[in-house]
Design a protein around this nucleic acid. Structure first.
Lengths: 337, 337
DNA sequence: TTGAAAGCGCTAACAA
DNA sequence: TTGTTAGCGCTTTCAA
C-alpha cells in the first residue's frame, strides 16, 4: 500500500498541511524541528507524492504528450530522446503515443492524451490526405490544451509550428554541388510525399531553376525513402550522364552506395553525392558523406519552449518557428572542371 | 476550460452520478431517455473524462511506465513500439522515460513513474556495476507497484523477468556454422558487457566447447557493438585463417562487411558470417545475412501480459520467462569441405 | 430510476 | 508556527 501525506502527518504528529508545506519546500513558516521530523518520517516510509491528486488541485500534471508517427525511424527516436531529455530537466514527464503514420489514429491519440490530463501536446501529424487533415483540423480547433506541431505541420490552420526548412536544405545541397562544377545533378526523393510543396524534391527543383539549370523529371528518381529504393535508383543512374546526385534521405543513400560498390564505382570519384539527415555516421565508415544536418536538439528545444510558454500563458498568439538545416561538408563531393 | 461531469449534469438536468454511470456504460439503471440526453450533451461539449480524478478513486491510472536505456537503438525503439501497441490495445497508455544507460538515473526514473501513478513498470536496467545494482535492488524491494524486467535483468533479485536467451542464440549460430563444415570460427563481440555471464560471447565460448572445438581468445574481437568496431575487427580477421565469423550484433556486421568490400572479399565466398538481431534488412541489400532473430513482438507481449497479471492480482509469485531466439537462414553461410 | 453524499490524496486559503 | 477545512473531478454506496 502506498503511504500518503495523512500517514506521515499522523506518524509525525502534525497536520497534513504541515507535511504538504514541508515536502513541497514551502516550509518557510514551519519550525526547523518539525520540518526535520516530517522529512525523516517521509523518508522512513519511502513516501512518494501522488501526482494525480496534486494535479487535481493545481490543474497541472507536469506531463506533456508526444504523438510520433514512427518511433522506429531514427529521426523520430532521436527527436523523442531530445524532447524527453529537455522536458525532464524542466520537470515534465512525457507520455508517448505512436500513430504509425495512420492519420485516423491521430484524433484518437489527441483525445487520449487530453483525457490523461497532459498539460500540452507535441504533435507530429501522420501523413494522410486532405480529408484526414480536415477532420484533424476540426478536432484541434476545440482542443482544450495547447499544442505545437513539430517537424511536420498541416496547412490552413493557425497554430504553433516548429520545423526545419527542407527547401532551404535542398538549396544548400544543390548550391554546393554547383559550386563544385556540377551541372548534371540528379535527385533521389520520395514521390508520394504528401506535404509535397515543402518537400526536399521541391527544394531540388527550385534550386535548379534558381541557378539557371534545367529541371529534367527523368533525373528525379523515386526512392521511397528506403534502402532498396536508393539501390534501384543507382541502377538507372549509372546509365545516365549525371555527375552528381542529391539524395533526400540517408536510407536511400545507403542503397545507392551499395549499388555503386557492387559495380565498382566510387564516391566521389565517379559520383559526387550529398545526402540528408546526417545519421549515416552510424552505418557508414567511409567515405564520409557530405550531408544536410538537422539539429534535432534545437528542434526539440524550440518545440518544448514554445509549448511551455503556451502552457504558462494561455493567451499567446500562435507562433511559427522555422529552423534552418546546415550543410555538413565531408568527402563525398568532388570538384570537377 | 475543460468541461466536467458537473457541467454535463447541470446542462442535462440530472445528477453527476447519473452522468458518471451513463458515460461509463454502467447505465443499466438509467432510463433510455435520460441516457440519450446525457450522451448528447457530453458530445456537444466534447467532454473528456479527467483520468486523474478517476484514478484517485479507482486506484488505477491505466498507465504503465517504461524505462528504456537507449531509444535511439533500433532494438529498443522497436520494442517500445510493440509495447505501446499492445498496451494501448489493452487500454493502457505508456509513459516512457529514458535512462541513457546511466544506472544512477534508474532509481530516479522508477521514483518518477511511481509518483506519476503508473499501475506498473516495464524496466530494462541500464548497464552498470555491482554497486549501482545493489542500490537498485534495494529500491526495487520496496517498490509499491508491480514491475517486470524486460530483456535485461539483474541477478540476485527475485522478480518478474522476461528475456531472450542469448546463450541459446549463440549456440544455434555456432551449430549452423559447424554443420556447414567450419571449425575456424571467430567471434566479434562486446568485451565490456556487464552481464557478461549471459552474453553472446559467453554463448560462443560455450558452444565451441560443446562441439569440441578450441576456444582461442585471440579469435574473439571486441567490436564494442559499433560499426567501426566491426570494421577494425575485419582488418585483423582478413589476416587470420578463420573461415567463419559469428558477429554479435548487426552494427558490427555492417562495419565488417564494409571492410571486406573494401578489400574485395565476398560473403559467403571468402567468409561465412552469422549476425545477431535481424535488423540488417533495413540497411543491407545483399547478400541476405543469416542471422539470429529475436521476436520483439513476443518479448513485448509476454512482458505486458506478465505485468498486467501482476497488476490485477497483487499476490502472484515472481515469474521468469525465457524466450528463445531463432536462426534465420539466409545466404551468408557457405558449406565447405 | 435517480440523487445525495462521502471520500480518493492533495493544496491552499484562512483561522487559530 | 501550525491546524482546519474546502474543494479539485470523479466513482460508488446508500437512500429516496
Amino acid at each position: 500500500m502506498k503511504v500518503t501525506i495523512k500517514d506521515i502527518a499522523r506518524e509525525a504528529g502534525v497536520s497534513v498541511a504541515a507535511v504538504s508545506l514541508v515536502l513541497n519546500q514551502k516550509d518557510c513558516r514551519i519550525a526547523e524541528e518539525t520540518k526535520k521530523r516530517i522529512i525523516e518520517v517521509a523518508r522512513k516510509y519511502n513516501y512518494t507524492v501522488n501526482q494525480q491528486a496534486r494535479s487535481l488541485v493545481t490543474k497541472k500534471s507536469n506531463v506533456i504528450g508526444l504523438i510520433i508517427p514512427d518511433i522506429e525511424n531514427i529521426f523520430f527516436s532521436s527527436l523523442s530522446k531530445k524532447i524527453e531529455e529537455y522536458c525532464r530537466r524542466k520537470g515534465y514527464a512525457i507520455m508517448i503515443v505512436i500513430s504509425d503514420e495512420n492519420p485516423k489514429e491521430d484524433i484518437e491519440l489527441l483525445h487520449l492524451l487530453v483525457s490523461r490530463g497532459v498539460d500540452g501536446i507535441l504533435y507530429t501529424p501522420s501523413n494522410g490526405n486532405e480529408q484526414d487533415y480536415e477532420k484533424i483540423r476540426k478536432y484541434l480547433s476545440s482542443l482544450p490544451i495547447p499544442y505545437v506541431m513539430v517537424d511536420r505541420y498541416l496547412d490552413n490552420i493557425e497554430c504553433n509550428k516548429v520545423y526545419i526548412d527542407n527547401i532551404n536544405g535542398s538549396l544548400q545541397a544543390i548550391e554546393m554541388l554547383i559550386k563544385n562544377g556540377h551541372t548534371k545533378i540528379g535527385c533521389i526523393g520520395y514521390a508520394v510525399s504528401k506535404s509535397v510543396t515543402y518537400s526536399r524534391v521541391t527544394g531540388y527543383k527550385e534550386a535548379m531553376k534558381q541557378f539557371g539549370l534545367p529541371v529534367n523529371e527523368k533525373y528525379i528518381y523515386d526512392g521511397q525513402y528506403k534502402v532498396i529504393g536508393g539501390y534501384h535508383a543507382g541502377k538507372e543512374i549509372v546509365n545516365s550522364d549525371l555527375t552528381a546526385v542529391f539524395i533526400c534521405n540517408d536510407m536511400m543513400t545507403l542503397g545507392f552506395l551499395k549499388y555503386l560498390s557492387e559495380c565498382g564505382k566510387k564516391v566521389p570519384n565517379d559520383y559526387s553525392i550529398i545526402s540528408y539527415d546526417n545519421t549515416l555516421h552510424n552505418f557508414v565508415v567511409s567515405p564520409k558523406i557530405t550531408t544536410i544536418d538537422q539539429d534535432l536538439g534545437e528542434l526539440a528545444k524550440n518545440a518544448c519552449q514554445l509549448l511551455f510558454k503556451n502552457i504558462s500563458n494561455k493567451n499567446t498568439n500562435p507562433e511559427v518557428i522555422c529552423l534552418y538545416p546546415q550543410l555538413l561538408i565531408n568527402e563525398s563531393v568532388k570538384k570537377i572542371n
